[in-house]
């Protein structure tokens, strides 16, 4: 806890520490030493999975301690894996959930992103199929905007892909467009375009296709890295992983049977508990002497009423609110 406080003070005094995300993949043997070290350096455990004698820890640690942490991981018999997308939730959106578009290649893309550490959500639009008849609703736009980035998967005809740009031109999060042919005139509507995939009826398993999936993961990493950098320019008041640590002790979260009741985002968290029963308790939690409700925007997820979103304010936003209060 002391370490966490120190981190907060450094954050507030704008002496930012760069955090690195990595994964320990090894056995349970001496893993308590690893967990202690994460705490000692002021890092946070993003996800911890134990399966029999195997143990995986995704952690966020200060950049200057990366080398020491890697040494610790190898000393206790495990290995370190790079998970550049850890702490992100990414939506992969197809025109529909029909068998024309699922499971391939959408699920192949989701799989490669999960290997990079991201939490993925596969989504089909209600009326996304067709050249002239495709549509996206406001509710679908709002749901997609809850994620850190979205991958839109379109088909094999250039003219169709270009005609369907309205599906993602109102999305405010970074959009990566994956298509068959290279479309023209869409560069300003999305962060990246990856051609050469298109509609497929079987798994992407040839060397060229695996390479293409790696390209997609790399491009998503680039896009997320830019978003992270933008956040560093005006850093969040508190790192989402620290809120996660706090929420892990909250009883409804502990009792939740959903596989990942807390999902980290770049600028906040998704909690898979109902807003109406928990909003007050969560808003009143204390984070570095402040109410969580005062340093974050808490809202119900647009997916349904069983999830809620916490968007952490930036330092400048919190300072702005503070000065407004003082002047009032």
């Amino acid at each position: 806890m002391l370490k966490m406080r120190r981190y907060a003070y450094t954050t507030r005094s704008k002496v930012m520490r760069m955090y690195e995300v990595m994964m320990y993949d090894g056995g349970i043997y001496r893993s308590n030493e690893l967990l202690e070290m994460i705490e000692d350096v002021g890092g946070v455990v993003i996800q911890k999975t134990r399966s029999a004698q195997m143990f995986n820890v995704t952690m966020s640690i200060p950049g200057e301690d990366k080398e020491a942490m890697e040494k610790m991981c190898t000393d206790i018999g495990g290995m370190v894996r790079s998970v550049p997308l850890a702490g992100t939730e990414i939506a992969i959106v197809g025109p529909t959930l029909g068998r024309h578009h699922m499971p391939h290649p959408i699920c192949d893309i989701a799989e490669i992103l999960r290997e990079s550490g991201s939490i993925t959500v596969v989504m089909g639009l209600a009326r996304g199929r067709g050249k002239a008849t495709s549509q996206i609703s406001m509710q679908e736009i709002d749901i997609i905007n809850e994620y850190d980035a979205a991958i839109f998967m379109l088909g094999n005809f250039k003219s169709c892909v270009e005609a369907k740009s309205h599906l993602f031109d109102k999305i405010s999060i970074p959009v990566i467009l994956v298509t068959g042919p290279m479309p023209e005139g869409l560069d300003d509507l999305c962060e990246a375009i990856i051609p050469g995939v298109g509609r497929k009826s079987e798994r992407m398993r040839t060397p060229e296709e695996r390479k293409k999936l790696d390209d997609i993961a790399e491009k998503v990493d680039d896009v997320v890295r830019i978003k992270r950098k933008m956040l560093e320019e005006d850093p969040l008041f508190v790192h989402p992983a620290e809120i996660k640590q706090l929420l892990e002790e909250y009883e409804p979260i502990k009792e939740s049977l959903r596989p990942a009741p807390i999902v980290l985002h770049l600028d906040g968290l998704r909690l898979k508990i109902p807003m109406k029963d928990n909003a007050d308790a969560i808003s009143n939690m204390t984070v570095y002497g402040r109410r969580l409700g005062d340093i974050a925007r808490i809202s119900e997820s647009r997916i349904n009423d069983s999830s809620m979103m916490i968007r952490i304010m930036t330092l400048s936003e919190v300072n702005d609110i503070d000065s407004a209060k003082k002047s009032a």
């Binding site: 094999n156 250039k158 068959g180 497929k200 079987e202």
Partner: peptide, 19 residues
């Protein structure tokens, strides 16, 4: 009218039929 689509749909047709 589109070369990419022609090749992709030929493969898609063959894949779906054999599947």
């Amino acid at each position: 009218t589109e070369n990419y689509g022609n090749e992709a749909y030929k493969k898609l047709f063959e894949d779906v039929m054999s599947e």
